[in-house]
Simulated scan of single mutants.
Amino acid sequence: MRALAAIWLLALLALAGPVRACAPVLERAIWTWEPESYAMLQSEAEADAAIAFLHAKGIQVVYLYADAYQGRNLIVEQPQLYRRLIKRFRKADIYTYALLGSAYLHTERYVLPSHRKEALAMVQRIFDYNARAAQEERFDGVNLDIEPHVLPQWGSQRQALLTGFLDLSRDIMAAKRQSGQAMSVGPAIPFWLDGIPLEWQGKRKPASEHVQDIYDYVALMDYRDHALGPDGIVSHGADEIAYAKAIGRTVWLGVETLPNDLKKVSFEHLREADMERELALAKRSFEDNSAFGGFVIHHYGQYQRWLKGVK
């Protein structure tokens, strides 16, 4: 009977197709912006250094910038560079998400109807890239950085801008379904979005819940330098994680290392050991919750600079 069971198991595995061997439990991701992403794409030495650094810091997911920068758009002009780098990451058990949206392109404007086509074209390029790439060269997901609150009219037109963001989000996910891609797609959103009630498609609820209803996951910009207390990482992420569990979604908690005038926003003024202590406390609060994905660090270049500047 054991021999027969083994035969059936092998048959089922064969039918299931190839899988990534020893896939790691994902607990750390990192935003990687234009200069560092383009450097990794164009230099094998930079890619080698990145892989070594990511392994050393236990980071298993790279949000790799995949749009235009300084007059070039490598995902269009030289997609073979993405194929090569993603394949190398995959061999190193590192997952790759296409990071879309940037200050360089002023993608906060993409929530406006006049920029809808640009936004959809940006995402469609990733779907098209994946459709043409071999399995080991494909993006595992997409992370969107489209932040309407950056627009100057946010103070007076907040509801309209958030409605535009939700309409765009709906169209992005429709394009994903149309493409047939199975990749995970989600945006970076601020933690305070759960405090803004919004009516959309006949339902009134916190804006964050509308966003979570649409996407596969969210990366919550949960920018605080401490885990516990009423103004900490845990408190600000609790509602989103509870809602994600109720609807079968995932939340990643973003943390900051860039300098900020409000010290509590970033770990920049602290040591690496301080950040690790606080993240361990936050993880302990959520690790039994299936909706908790892990932590996302902002961002690759600054994180490295910060680490070099601390003892």
Rank of each mutant, 00 (worst) to 15 (best):
E36T: 14
Q78D: 02
R2G: 14
D67V: 01
L64S: 10
P206W: 00
L144Y: 02
D145S: 08
G293S: 12
G155E: 06
E27L: 07
L26N: 13
G195W: 06
Q181M: 10
D231T: 05
V265F: 01
L13K: 01
E287Q: 12
A3D: 03
A131S: 12
E108D: 15
A52S: 02
P18C: 15
V296F: 06
R20E: 07
R177Y: 13
A242Q: 10
L105C: 03
L281H: 06
K245W: 03
S290T: 06
H106F: 08
K117C: 08
A68F: 09
L13C: 00
A219L: 05
H115V: 03
E268A: 05
G293H: 09
G248E: 11
L13F: 02
M183F: 02
H269F: 11
M1E: 06
S235L: 02
K311F: 02
I30Q: 06
Y300C: 11
A273T: 14
G71E: 02
D67C: 00
T107N: 03
Y38A: 11
G164F: 02
S285T: 05
R2T: 14
A207K: 10
E27S: 12
Q181A: 09
K57T: 03
P206E: 03
D231R: 11
L166Q: 05
H106R: 14
W192Q: 03
E276H: 04
R83V: 12
E240M: 14
S208F: 00
H210T: 14
L13R: 04
P187S: 08
P18G: 13
Q181K: 06
A131Q: 15
Q178D: 06
L100A: 08
V185G: 11
D222F: 03
Y69M: 09
I7N: 11
Y217T: 01
S43E: 08
A103R: 15
T107A: 05
S179R: 01
W252K: 06
R28D: 10
F127A: 08
V123D: 01
P35H: 10
K87Q: 08
F286M: 02
I241S: 05
A98Q: 00
A227D: 11
D167A: 06
I172H: 09
A119Y: 13
W31Y: 15
T32C: 15
R116D: 01
E240W: 04
S266M: 13
L74G: 10
I86S: 09
P113A: 06
F53R: 01
Y215P: 12
A5E: 05
A39V: 02
A21D: 04
A273E: 15
A23V: 14
S37H: 01
S156Y: 04
E137R: 03
V251K: 00
I146E: 09
E77D: 13
F295V: 10
H106N: 10
L168I: 13
D93N: 07
E108H: 05
G58Q: 12
G202F: 01
I59P: 14
D216L: 12
A119E: 05
T250Y: 05
I172C: 13
Q157K: 15
I233P: 13
A134N: 08
L307M: 12
G164E: 12
K176C: 10
A134M: 07
Y95R: 14
Q201A: 14
F139S: 00
L13S: 03
A49N: 07
S290N: 00
L281W: 13
G155W: 01
Y243F: 11
V234H: 01
N260H: 12
L258C: 05
T107Q: 10
Q42R: 11
E77C: 10
H115C: 00
